[in-house]
Amino acid sequence: NQASVVANQLIPISTHLTLVMMRSEVVTPVGIPAEDIPRLVSMQVNRAVPLGTTLMPDMVKGYA
């Protein structure tokens, strides 16, 4: 099972991601792979992401 990136807190819209905001967890459905966490740092979310939500490629500007 592959770990995905999950929000560690509420991430407001247009926030630049930091390591503190993300954790890796095995979830269904599978989202952005956990090994991409370093790549996600300083990218922006294009919507509010609630605590515990799996980050999907379409939620992060410039990821997909």
Rank of each mutant, 00 (worst) to 15 (best):
Q44P: 05
A48W: 13
M59C: 05
T28K: 13
G52F: 05
R39D: 08
T28V: 14
T53Y: 10
L40D: 01
I32M: 03
V41I: 12
G52T: 03
I13F: 13
V5Q: 00
M21E: 02
A7P: 02
V60L: 08
I32Q: 00
H16K: 14
G52A: 06
K61W: 14
N1P: 11
V20C: 08
R39Q: 10
V6Q: 03
G31S: 01
L19C: 07
V27M: 06
S42C: 07
R23D: 06
L55D: 00
M21T: 02
P50Q: 11
P12W: 04
S42Y: 12
L17H: 00
D58Y: 15
N8F: 04
H16E: 10
L17G: 00
V26Q: 14
V6W: 03
D36W: 09
P33E: 04
P57Q: 08
G31A: 03
V49D: 02
T15W: 07
M59Y: 10
Q9M: 14
G52C: 04
M21N: 07
M43H: 09
V60R: 00
P29C: 05
V20I: 11
V30Q: 13
L55N: 01
R23W: 04
N8D: 12
K61N: 14
Q9I: 10
P57S: 10
A64I: 11
Q9E: 10
Y63P: 04
M59A: 08
D58M: 10
G52P: 01
V27L: 05
K61I: 14
M59R: 00
G62K: 09
G31N: 01
G31V: 02
L17K: 00
P50E: 13
H16P: 15
T54R: 03
S14M: 15
T15K: 06
L51T: 15
L40T: 01
T54N: 03
S24M: 10
S14T: 10
A34S: 13
E35F: 12
L40A: 02
V30S: 13
P38M: 09
V5I: 09
R47S: 09
M21G: 00
Q9T: 10
T18D: 06
V41M: 06
P29N: 05
A34H: 06
R47H: 10
V20P: 10
Q44E: 14
E35H: 14
M56D: 04
V60M: 05
M59S: 05
A3C: 07
A64F: 09
Q2D: 08
A34K: 06
D58K: 13
S42E: 09
N1L: 15
V26P: 07
E25M: 13
M22I: 08
V41E: 06
V20R: 14
N1F: 11
P50M: 09
G31W: 03
R47V: 11
V45A: 05
A48H: 13
V5G: 02
Y63H: 04
A3L: 12
E25S: 11
P57V: 07
V45T: 10
N46S: 11
N1Q: 10
T53H: 13
G31E: 01
N8S: 15
V6A: 02
M21L: 04
V5S: 03
V41S: 03
T15V: 08
R47Q: 09
V45Q: 00
G62D: 09
L17Y: 03
T53L: 09
A7K: 02
I32H: 02
A48Q: 14
M43I: 04
K61L: 14
I11F: 01
A7N: 01
E35T: 15
Q2A: 14
H16N: 11
A7C: 04
D36H: 15
S4M: 02
P12H: 08
D58N: 12
L17F: 01
N46R: 09
T15L: 04
A64H: 14
A34W: 06
A7Q: 01
L51S: 12
A3Y: 12
L10G: 13
E35R: 14
L51M: 13
M21V: 03
S14G: 13
P57K: 06
L40H: 01
G52M: 04
G31H: 03
K61F: 12
Q9S: 09
E25R: 08
Q2F: 13
V49G: 02
L40F: 01
M43Y: 08
V26R: 10
V27A: 07
I13W: 09
V49S: 01
S4A: 02
L40G: 00
S42T: 13
S24Y: 07
R47M: 10
N1K: 10
T15H: 06
D58I: 09
V5N: 02
L10M: 11
G62C: 07
Q9P: 00
L19P: 13
A7I: 04
I11S: 01
M21R: 00
I32V: 08
V30C: 08
I13P: 11
M22Y: 02
L10W: 12
N1G: 12
Y63S: 03
T54Y: 03
I37T: 07
R47C: 09
N1T: 13
N46K: 08
M22K: 00
V27S: 05
P57L: 04
D58C: 06
T54M: 03
M56A: 08
P29Y: 04
V26L: 12
P50H: 07
L51N: 14
R39F: 10
L19K: 11
I13V: 15
P57C: 06
M22V: 07
L55V: 06
V26S: 09
A48N: 15
P33I: 08
P12D: 07
V45K: 00
G62E: 10
A3N: 07
A64G: 12
I11G: 00
T53W: 11
R23I: 08
M22A: 00
V49R: 01
G62R: 05
N8V: 12
P57W: 11
S24K: 10
V26M: 11
L55S: 00
L40V: 04
I37L: 14
R39N: 13
L19M: 14
R47F: 06
S4H: 01
R23G: 08
D36P: 01
Q9A: 11
M43W: 06
K61D: 15
N46T: 11
K61E: 15
T54E: 01
L40C: 03
V49N: 02
S42V: 04
I37Q: 05
M59N: 05
L19D: 06
D58L: 08
A34I: 06
R23E: 04
Q2I: 12
T28P: 00
R47A: 07
T53P: 01
V49Y: 02
L17N: 00
R23A: 06
V5F: 03
V26D: 09
L17T: 00
T18I: 06
V49K: 00
D58S: 13
P33W: 09
G52H: 07
A7M: 04
I32N: 00
D36G: 04
M43K: 11
N1C: 08
L55Q: 01
A48I: 15
P38Y: 13
L51I: 14
R23Y: 05
I32C: 05
M43L: 15
N46H: 07
V27E: 02
M43Q: 07
T53Q: 11
V20L: 14
K61Y: 13
E25C: 07
S24C: 06
P12V: 05
E25F: 07
N46W: 07
L10D: 15
M56R: 09
A64Y: 11
N46L: 15
Q2T: 10
I37G: 03
Y63K: 03
V27G: 02
L10K: 14
V27I: 08
R23K: 13
S24E: 11
D58R: 09
I13Q: 15
R23V: 07
K61A: 15
V49Q: 02
Q9H: 08
L17I: 07
I37H: 02
T18L: 07
V26W: 11
I11Y: 03
M59I: 05
S42Q: 11
R39L: 12
L19G: 06
V6R: 03
V6D: 02
D36A: 13
R47N: 08
S14P: 01
H16W: 12
I11L: 08
A48C: 08
T53I: 08
A3P: 14
T53K: 10
S42N: 15
P57N: 05
I13C: 08
V27F: 01
V20T: 15
L55P: 00
V30M: 15
P12T: 07
M43F: 09
T28N: 12
N8W: 04
A64S: 11
M56N: 05
S24T: 12
V5Y: 02
Q44D: 03
L17S: 00
A48G: 10
I11T: 00
H16F: 14
S24G: 14
N1H: 15
M59K: 01
V26A: 09
R47G: 05
V26E: 09
R39T: 13
V45G: 01
V20N: 15
P38I: 11
T53D: 13
P33V: 10
I13M: 13
D36Q: 14
A3W: 12
V27C: 06
S42P: 00
M43D: 04
V30K: 12
G31I: 00
I37S: 03
G62M: 07
Y63R: 03
L55T: 01
L10C: 10
G52V: 02
P38T: 11
M59W: 11
P57A: 09
A48F: 10
Q9L: 11
V5A: 13
